[in-house]
């Protein structure tokens, strides 16, 4: 029982990280109906930025905040410069652009920082502060995730800009008719997604260590989380994130073994897509002919 509880809590900790990245995916999906394959690499890139700051002597939390800002700007710039020109292109073209982005970020990071694995600090103490069942980093990561979610919720629910972003995502034409600059809202969405992703990156790096390929698996779990919850539903994505985290850990520890953990993500992704593409909380997808 103890072992089980331990795994569930560990699952919640990584689940929070998946939830953050899933949320980033959902934000871009809601606005553009696209799944950003480069979301993980953007997060990884931002995490290297944080590592450089910390390595240069900056204390953790200022570096954390500066990284979030950096990621935000990175997201906005990528949208305006790279995504904007292909906005209305066929899916294949857009997927290729995402993959190009993934490859470029991955290789530039490898080039600049080398492919050797680096340790990344956790802001939380080494001794357990949340009881015996969960590491302090795990507990802290859950806390950070919840704070991010709360901030996002408040932003979208209570600020005019958040409302405008929701409006632009839902009905771009009407949004223009009330004077919303829809293009900038998309860029802002990319910025926010990248910022959330950077938090996920900084939270996962102490666990998996920092290397240019560290987000591959995380991205897959985040895909699974977003799909399970409903890819157009932010709340669902968060729920999906925690669920996938727990499933991965519990199944990995007691049923299928750690080697096949990633298969959980694969099965979930294909299973959800085939059986119920709208996920648990999503709306049914309708394509226009």
């Amino acid at each position: 029982m103890d072992a089980f509880l331990h795994q569930v809590l560990a699952g919640l900790a990584t689940g929070g990280i998946y939830a953050s990245l899933a949320l980033a995916l959902v934000m871009i999906y809601q606005a553009t109906h696209l799944v950003n394959f480069a979301q993980g690499e953007m997060a990884m890139f931002a995490t290297y930025f944080a590592w450089s700051l910390i390595n240069a002597g900056m204390p953790y939390w200022p570096a954390f905040l500066l990284t979030v800002v950096f990621a935000f700007v990175l997201g906005v710039v990528i949208e305006r410069v790279i995504i904007r020109p292909v906005e209305n292109s066929p899916v294949l073209v857009i997927v290729v652009v995402f993959i190009a982005l993934l490859v470029i970020l991955n290789s530039v990071t490898g080039w600049v920082f080398s492919y050797t694995i680096k340790t990344f600090p956790s802001p939380f103490p080494a001794e357990p502060i949340f009881g015996q069942y969960i590491t302090s980093h795990g507990g802290g990561a859950i806390g950070v995730t919840l704070v991010v979610l709360l901030l996002l919720y408040a932003f979208f629910r209570f600020t005019p800009l958040g409302l405008a972003m929701r409006a632009a995502a839902q009905n771009p034409e009407s949004a223009r008719l009330v004077g919303i600059r829809v293009g900038w809202m998309l860029a802002l969405g990319w910025g926010l997604a990248a910022a959330i992703g950077s938090v996920a990156g900084m939270m996962v790096a102490p666990i998996v260590f920092l290397d240019p390929n560290m987000m591959g698996g995380v991205l897959l779990y985040a895909f699974a989380a977003a799909l399970v919850g409903g890819i157009d539903n932010p709340g669902g994505a968060v729920f999906g994130g925690f669920l996938v985290g727990v499933l991965e850990n519990v199944l990995g520890a007691f049923v299928i073994g750690n080697e096949l953990k990633l298969a959980v993500a694969l099965v979930l992704i294909i299973g959800v897509l085939v059986v119920k593409p709208s996920g648990i909380f999503g709306k049914v997808m309708v394509t226009r002919v």
Binding site: H33, L34, F37, V95, L219, L227, L260, I269, V274, P277
Partner: peptide, 24 residues
């Protein structure tokens, strides 16, 4: 199963296959 998937979703499913294969 891929029959039920259009464009982006097929890309996602195959991407998942590609990422998880080494582990399998």
């Amino acid at each position: 199963p891929a029959l039920r998937l259009e464009g982006l979703y097929l890309a996602l499913a195959t991407f998942a296959l590609g990422v998880s294969l080494p582990a399998l």
